[in-house]
Nucleic acid binder design. Structure first.
Lengths: 349, 349
DNA sequence: TGCGGGTATGAAATGGGTTTCAAACATGCG
DNA sequence: CGCATGTTTGAAACCCATTTCATACCCGCA
C-alpha cells in the first residue's frame, strides 16, 4: 500500500551521481556539465521527482507560507479579499493558509496552537477580531510566537501596535455616501448597522457623525447591532417606528449591502418607496447590488486589491526587497438608482 | 533583526538535560521523573517553545495538511463548502490549503508545481474543473505526485476514476424543483443557465430533461451559457423573445440563485409579474434568496455539510480508522414565494 | 554479594534536502 | 613541464525534531 516516496538519493543512485549534483541540476546551478545535467534530468523526469518542500523548509527556515486570519470566507467582502491575496501569493510563489475566526468566538487555544506550529513566514489579519478591544491581545499573542515575524493588518490603523497596515479607509466611504446624499438635497439622514465591538464599524460611525457635524446636520441616527440582512430589516422597523413621520429620515446609510438589502425588503413591505420616499445607500458593491429593486447605490472598497497589496507588502517586508508596491484604490461611490440618480445601471429593455 | 529561533536543543541545554528528555516532556511520555519534568516544563514555558512542525513532518512523513481545489471562494456555494471543510479539519487537527482554479483557465504548470511541492496528505476537489472533460487529466496528474495519496471529489461520481466521492446529487435538485412546479399546475417549464463544459451543469440538465420526459411534458427549453446574474438577465430576454406569448413558459428553473436573481430583475423590467405570470425557482439557497422580490423558492444543497463530511472521510481514509462518518443531507426544496406558494417566509409587518 | 528487572536518561540514527568545503580534473600560460 | 586558475563533482555538516537502542542507576531477592 505504502508507496515509498522517491528521494533525491534514489535519483542520485539511479543517475550514478551524488545527491549534491542532483540538487544542483534542480536548482539550475551553473557549474554542472551539460552531459551530467542531461543525464540527471532524464532520471528526474522519469520518476516525476519533485524535491520535498518540507525538507527544504527545514533547511532554509522559510516556509514560503503566509497565514491569513479572517472572520470567515462566506462574507463576500472577505472572500474577495482572500482571493486577491491568493492570486498575488501564487504569483510570488507563496502559499496561503487560511484561519477562520468567527466574529463572536474567542480565540481558542487549539487554534492558537495550530497557528504556532505551522511556521508561517508572516501573517495577514483582517476583520472585527483583530480590531475588537478585548481580543486585541491576538496580536501580542502572535508576537510571542516569533518576535521578528511581520504582521500585516487590513483595517483602520491600530495605535501602539507594531504592524504593517493597509489602510482601509472606512470613514471615507461613509463620508462619500453622506456628501452624495447631501448634494441630492437630503438633510435628515440616518445610519443603520454595525456593532459596538467592531472597530471598523465604529470607524464608519465616527466618520458619519463627524461629517454630519461638518455639514451642520442634526444626527438622526439609529444604531443597530448586526451586519446581516435581517439586522437591516429589524433596523428599519425600529428606526421608523421610533420616529414621527415629520422627523422620518429621507435617506438611509447602511453599513453594508446586506443591511441595505434587508432594509429595501422591509421598506417595500411597509409601502415606503425607494428612492421617492427614502433614499438607501449601501456599502461593499456586492454582486447582488445591481439586482436589488431599485438597483443599489453603494461604495466599492476593492477588497481584492487590498488582499493583493497586503501580500505584496508582506513579501516585500520578508525579502527586504525594495519592491515598489502599488496602493489599493480608495473607496469609490457606485451610483445606481436607490438614491434617485440613474447612472451606469445596466438594463436590457 | 534576525531573531534566532529556539530549538529543542536550546531548551535542553538551558534545562541541563538531553533533547530526548525535552521531547518526552512535550509528548507527555510516561518515563520522565516528576522533578525533571517540572524543570523542563519551566524552561519551555519561559521561552514559549513550540516544536517546529516542519521538523516533525519531515520525520513522521505526514503533514496533517489537506489540499482543497475549488474554482474559487467568491461563489458562496464554494465558500460555504470550504468553511464546512475548514471547521471539520480544525476539529481533527488538520490544516487546509486552498488552491483556486478559475473555471476557464487551464491548470498552470506553476500551480501544479505548487501543489506537488506542498506535501499534502490528501486532496479534496470540487467544481467544474474536476469534471470538465478536457481537464479531467487533473486527477491523473495529481496521481503522479504520489500514487497512494487519497483524493476525494465532491461532485456527481466520475466513472473509471479511482477516487472517494461525496455524491452531490445535482440532478435530484432539479427533479424536485420540477415536480414542485408540476404539482402547482405548471406544464410549460423552461430551464435557464449552465454551460456545456461543466458536468454538474450537464447533470442538472439531464435531470431536467429526464424528469420532463417522465412527466410527459414538452421540452420548452433554453440553454444559456453562464452562471451569473447577468446571464440570467440575458437568458430571460432571449428566452422570451424567441417564443410567442402562447408558448411562453409559465415557470422558470434557474441553475442557481444568481441566475434567478438576474431573471427576476429582468422580468420586473419587462413588466412580467412573478409569480402571477411566471414562476421562478433557483438553486443554492443563498443568503439573499429570502430578500429578492418576491422571496425566492430555491433548493438547499448543504455545501457546508458536504465539505465537513469530505474532510471526515478523507481523514478516515488516511488514518485507516473505522470512523462512522455522517452522510450529508440530500438536497431540500425551500419554498418561498416566487412560485406562488407562501410558506415559511419571514416578514415583519 | 551478585543478578534480574524496572525506571530514568542520553547518544546516535533518521528524515530529505542544501550548502560549504575540499578534492579531482582540465585548461592556460610562462 | 610545472604551476596557477577554473570547472565538476562529491563528502560531510546542517536544519530540528523523534525514536531506537544502550547505558546508568536503583531496588529487591537469593
Amino acid at each position: 500500500m505504502e508507496t515509498e516516496r522517491i528521494t533525491i538519493y534514489d535519483i542520485a543512485r539511479e543517475a550514478g551521481v551524488s545527491p549534491t549534483t542532483v540538487s544542483r541540476v534542480i536548482a539550475e546551478h551553473a557549474n554542472v556539465s551539460a552531459h551530467t545535467r542531461k543525464k540527471v534530468r532524464k532520471v528526474i523526469d522519469q520518476y516525476h521527482f519533485t524535491p520535498s518542500r518540507i525538507a527544504q523548509e527545514l533547511l532554509s527556515k522559510r516556509s514560503l507560507t503566509l497565514g491569513v486570519i479572517l472572520p470567515g470566507v462566506t462574507h463576500p467582502y472577505y472572500a474577495e479579499m482572500f482571493e486577491g491575496a491568493y492570486q498575488e501569493a501564487c504569483r510570488l510563489g507563496y502559499t496561503l493558509i487560511l484561519f477562520c475566526l468567527p466574529q463572536n468566538e474567542p480565540l481558542s487555544a487549539s487554534l492558537m496552537d495550530q497557528i504556532a506550529r505551522r511556521r508561517v513566514d508572516g501573517m495577514i489579519l483582517s476583520g472585527g477580531i483583530v480590531e475588537a478591544t478585548p481580543e486585541r491581545e491576538l496580536i501580542p499573542m502572535l508576537r510571542t510566537l516569533r518576535r521578528s515575524m511581520p504582521i500585516l493588518t487590513i483595517c483602520p490603523p491600530l495605535p501602539d501596535v507594531d504592524c504593517i497596515n493597509i489602510y482601509s479607509d472606512l470613514s471615507s466611504s461613509v463620508r462619500q455616501s453622506l456628501r452624495h446624499l447631501y448634494n441630492l438635497g437630503h438633510r435628515r439622514i440616518a445610519f443603520l448597522g454595525g456593532s459596538y465591538e467592531s472597530r471598523s464599524a465604529g470607524e464608519r460611525e465616527l466618520g458619519f457623525l463627524d461629517e454630519m457635524k461638518k455639514l451642520d446636520l442634526p444626527a438622526v441616527y439609529r444604531h443597530e447591532a448586526g451586519h446581516t440582512a435581517e439586522a437591516g430589516q429589524l433596523g428599519v422597523i425600529k428606526l421608523l417606528s421610533s420616529l414621527t413621520d415629520q422627523r422620518r429620515p429621507t435617506a438611509l446609510i447602511c453599513i453594508n449591502d446586506l443591511v441595505a438589502l434587508g432594509s429595501l425588503t422591509q421598506l417595500h413591505h411597509m409601502g415606503i418607496r425607494v428612492p421617492e420616499d427614502i433614499a438607501v445607500i449601501g456599502c461593499d458593491n456586492q454582486f447582488f447590488a445591481p439586482y436589488t429593486s431599485p438597483p443599489l447605490t453603494t461604495v466599492d472598497l476593492h477588497p481584492a486589491e487590498h488582499g493583493r497589496v497586503a501580500v505584496q507588502q508582506l513579501v516585500a517586508a520578508l525579502t527586504d526587497e525594495a519592491m515598489n508596491f502599488s496602493q489599493p484604490r480608495p473607496a469609490v461611490l457606485i451610483i445606481r438608482e436607490s438614491c434617485g440618480v440613474s447612472l451606469g445601471a445596466r438594463r436590457f429593455e
